[in-house]
Structures are given as structure tokens and as C-alpha cells.
Simulated scan of single mutants.
Amino acid sequence: MAKGDIILGPNQYGKAECRLVRVTRDTPVHRIEDLTVTAQLRGDFTACHTDGDNANVIATDTQKNTVYAYAREYGIGSPEQFLLTLGRHFVEDFEHVTGGRWESQLHAWDRIAVEGEPHDHAFVREGRELRTTLVQRDGDDTWVLAGFRDCTVLKSTGSEFHGFPRDRYTTLAETKDRILATSVTVWWRYASADLGDWDARYAAIRDTMLETFAGLHSLALQQTIFAMGRAVLERFPEVAEVKLSCPNKHHFLVDLEPFGLDNPNEVFYAADRPYGLIEATVQREGEPEAPAAWANVAGFC
């Protein structure tokens, strides 16, 4: 192959955003698992791109059907375990598939309360964040990433912002007491794909982050998100690295003086844009270099 020849570079394909709802009916109290699953395969698909030869192409429709069939045959249990099972099937059962990427978002449901008791089979969609999961395989190597997004949090006090440089374009006033609000998007990378008990671990890591947000007296959103990532790494040795992306949901004090009223940090207007966007990776010093599967996993850091 001569220099300058045009060749196919990295590629992947699959079925995106398969809506999967599984109802477990083995007792009168039903359980709902609601996922959006995206499956993508990597491997020897050059002939399809260059010559239209589909001999090695597992149709995206087949991938979709496998998602539903595996939900019936193996159950879901946890997003991590379900995606690991899918990845194992495609990589180990198809010789020309060398790896892939399987991602999900979990849509949570609460039971509707009837006369103070949770109903056996009636649910209401939770308004909380989406739980996110990503499994990547490259041959025998597997990486499990977990996290959540659209988690909106707010502190009505316990936050300051001051001491920043000022020039002729600076109009922001310094403050010793402000509302701190953000919508947290976070991914963390597990050091192993064989941990098990994924649901309990996810809940504990999530709670650790939110407790840190609530408990830290913040001097900057940067300080807060670093503390959230550090708390996870300190408490969970099985987590190798944490990535956070947090837009600053600004709340500005309304000037009520024209109406003859004071405003002792009580009335604000919430500005949706533009907004500060704070992102960081929190890692242990000397940690082995992250796999390529982790790079730009959420489009940041």
C-alpha cells in the first residue's frame, strides 16, 4: 500500500436507542426495568465499506432483536450486567467482531401510592436524573463505565465566589452568600469488569457525590466538583477515575430598590443562558493510563 492511498479508518455500527421495557411478573408485585440501549460493533467490516460485501455484517435489526431476546432470556438485573452479557455474546460468538460499545440510560419509575401504600402494578415516572452505563470491549479487554446526567442540585446558601481577577470588562459582583446550582453529568470508570452488585455500588457512589455537594462550604463550583470526585475515589478503591461536567445554573439577585423594597438574598431570577461550564477529571496520581475507551467518553475532559 503506497503512501497517500485512501483507506478505511476506525469505524463502528449498530442499533441506536432501542427502547426496552421489561416487566417482571413472578410475584403479584411487578417490577419495571426501562432502558434505552445503543449497541455498536467493531471488527472486520472493511469489505462492506469498500465493496458493499455484507458477509460479515450483523444487521442492526439483528442487534436490536438480540437486545429484546436477551432481556427475556437472561433478564436485566442491572444495566452493567445486561450490557456485559450483550458484549460477551457479540464478541465471543462472532469471530469477525473484535469489540464494541454498549450504552444505556435507565428511566426510573416509582410506585403510585394508594391509601398510603405503594401499588403492586401502577407506576409514575420519576423526575430524577438518568442513570447511564457504558460497556466497551476490545478483544479480551472489557471496561465498565457508569454515571448519571440531568441531576439538578441546588444549595440556597453555603456558597461564595470572590477574589477573582478584575479588568475593565468585569461586572460580576463578588459575593459571600449565593445560590449554587448545577446539573451534574458524571462518568466514573471501574477498575474491573467483575465487581458484581452494580446497583448497590451505583447508589452508594451517587449518594457520596450528593452528600459532598450538600456538605461542602463552596468557594467555587470548581472546588465543589473536585471534592465530589475526590470523595468517590477515597471511599471506593474500585473506581479508577471520575469525570464531571457541571453547568453553573446562575441565580441573580433581583434589584427591588426601584419598587421601594429591599432584597435580603430572597428573590432571584434564574438565567438559563449563557452559563459557566465547569468540567474536570479527578484521578489518582500514578494511575495507569486510561484505555482509549475512556477518552472523551461524554464529550468533555
Rank of each mutant, 00 (worst) to 15 (best):
A113C: 13
V67I: 14
E95V: 09
L83P: 04
T60H: 06
Q40F: 07
Y70P: 14
A69V: 05
R42V: 15
W109N: 07
L35E: 12
W109I: 04
T50I: 09
T38K: 07
T60L: 10
T38Q: 05
V114F: 09
W109T: 06
V57E: 01
L41A: 13
T62S: 09
N56R: 02
L106K: 03
Q63I: 13
V97K: 01
D44T: 06
F82R: 13
R111S: 06
I76L: 11
H107M: 12
A59K: 00
T98W: 03
T85H: 00
G77W: 00
L106G: 08
L35C: 11
T85Y: 00
H89M: 13
N54W: 05
V97P: 05
W109C: 08
V57I: 05
L41K: 10
G99W: 06
D110N: 08
H107R: 11
G75M: 11
V97F: 00
Y70L: 15
N56S: 04
A47H: 02
E92N: 10
T62A: 06
V37A: 03
I76Y: 06
Q81I: 12
T46S: 13
R72Y: 14
F45I: 04
F45S: 07
V97C: 02
I58L: 11
T38A: 03
E115T: 13
D44Q: 12
Y74N: 01
G43R: 03
A69E: 07
A39W: 07
W109L: 11
Y74Q: 01
T66N: 03
Y68I: 07
F90N: 04
Y70T: 15
Y68L: 14
D61N: 07
G75W: 10
E115Q: 14
F82H: 12
R42D: 12
V114H: 05
E95R: 04
E103R: 15
L35Q: 09
G99C: 08
H49L: 04
S78T: 11
E95P: 04
G43I: 10
G75E: 11
Q81H: 05
F94E: 01
H96Q: 15
E115D: 15
Q105N: 12
A108H: 03
T62K: 05
W102E: 01
G100A: 02
L35R: 07
L84P: 12
R101Y: 05
G43S: 08
T98P: 02
T98E: 05
S78H: 06
R88C: 00
D61T: 03
Q63K: 12
A71Y: 09
G99T: 03
E73G: 07
T38D: 07
T98F: 02
F82M: 15
H96S: 11
L84F: 09
K64D: 15
T38S: 10
A39C: 13
F94T: 01
T62H: 04
G100C: 03
G99A: 09
F45H: 02
F94I: 01
E115M: 14
H96R: 11
H107G: 09
T85N: 00
S78N: 06
Q40R: 10
T50M: 09
A39N: 11
